[in-house]
Design a protein around this nucleic acid. Structure first.
Lengths: 243, 243
DNA sequence: ACGGAGATGTCATGAATATTTCATGTTTCC
DNA sequence: GGAAACATGAAATATTCATGACATCTCCGT
């Protein structure tokens, strides 16, 4: 089993002939929470798309056999695939051609090499554009709008850093569930990242501070020796046992 | 004392050819509460897996004979072993190969040398992932929600300290069973911890106090000279020896 | 390249809470 | 009654958590 990392972002079909890059893409995207399928060329891609319908396709521009552009054109003609978002990976030298190619209705392109961050951002943008509106999640007085990356408490907007946002996102999708620090590290930071376990405390504190800015009740429950949970105070804390 | 090994975390098969490391792994994992089996190479591993089904396999990447990757592939093809989680131990220099090898996203890896803490954490993550959602457990008026770390009696939330929680957790999974103090020490504190036997009494007392806060019937039965059990009073206390 | 703003990870410290042990009282059983 | 087993309260330790400060890093605009 592999890092399921953050919650499902969406499914990606990677079409890339060079093995090294293909594997690299597959791995890093999976790390980021995408569900990834890979094929080696355009024909395999078409075969794959007969039965599967990924949220987005990531095509290499230069490939043996069908080029990315040709593949894209074919995709556009298939009835069920008209709206499949396509992101091209191109060498910088091809840039002019690509821009020309994008004229007739392709979606976006990215010059390689590029950082995973950049790729991730671009994929998210594409998914955001085409995907049905993501649901607003709520818990008690909290609302989280994935669309805007916006969190509110009782209607009042809350400013959160990236990590705190993802923390709350995880919490709010599992109300009241207690997450150990280890689990939080794994799900927010990824499996192969070494971060002090106590760092979780710090981010919890920042999240708390942001949520309770105006002195309201704390919504994060500390469960001693176990972890943290999003909770609305209707449940008593695990109290002291000494006495 | 620190509550170290929460006993019985799961069973691990260690496949490692180098004797030093194998013994080290075996020892440290056992220390942490895993049930460990070791074999020296891939063939022994396959033989072992014919009859046993560990919760997770820990494979060395580089081994004489079958490599870890080959072994993993074979495992994946066996009908009953498809879902066996596999964790690879790799040298850092192999990292690229490993990433390439973990094609289907079913596995995970760890670069050695690594601390026991790290290994433990990863194994726990792996086990957690494959374990089905934990169910709410009940006994009489009591409910225990492992997910939320929450205990209720007749719907009323009960505040418990960490040790009392684990105590009740053990009890409620074995209703009416009498646990000796020795057993409780072993299962809650771990095998190699020296704690006064009478300390158990104290925690039992705190558990009772918390459960009976509002003056309800005691749910913990003291069995003189034997130990304690979770009981709802429908069974008569140990009768006089005269009958 | 440079500097600032924001974000992140780590640490030291004090506060809060848990754990263990011990002394002593109470119950049980012969 | 008396011994053994158990219950209880409280003190001494030990652990875990919250918090503020700070060094580093990244991202961005100049």
């Amino acid at each position: 089993m592999k890092p399921p990392a953050s919650p499902q972002k969406g499914s990606v079909l990677v079409v890339e002939d060079e093995p090294t890059l293909r594997v690299l893409l597959e791995h890093s995207l999976r790390q980021r929470g995408y569900q990834v399928s890979t094929v080696m060329d355009g024909e395999q891609a078409l075969a794959f798309l007969e039965t599967e319908r990924p949220d987005v396709a990531l095509l290499d521009w230069m490939m043996p056999g069908l080029s990315g552009l040709e593949l894209c054109r074919i995709i556009r003609q298939k009835p069920g695939l008209k709206d499949l978002p396509v992101l091209f990976l191109t060498a910088r030298t091809d840039e002019q051609d690509v821009i020309a190619g994008l004229d007739n209705g392709a979606d976006d392109y990215l010059t390689k090499p590029c950082s995973t961050d950049r790729l991730d951002a671009r994929l998210r943008a594409l998914l955001r554009r085409t995907r049905p509106v993501q649901d607003i999640v709520t818990f008690g007085p909290l609302t989280l709008e994935p669309e805007n990356h916006q969190v509110k408490r009782a209607g009042r907007p809350i400013a959160l850093g990236p990590t705190e946002y993802r923390l709350l996102e995880l919490f709010i999708h599992h109300p009241r569930k207690v997450f150990s620090r280890e689990t939080l590290l794994e799900r927010l930071w990824g499996p192969n990242v070494h971060v002090e376990i106590r760092t979780v405390d710090v981010h919890i504190r920042r999240l708390r501070k942001a949520l309770n800015e105006t002195g309201e009740a704390d919504l994060i429950r500390t469960v001693r020796a176990a972890g943290y949970a999003l909770d609305d105070g209707t449940i008593s804390q695990h109290g002291p046992s000494s006495g």
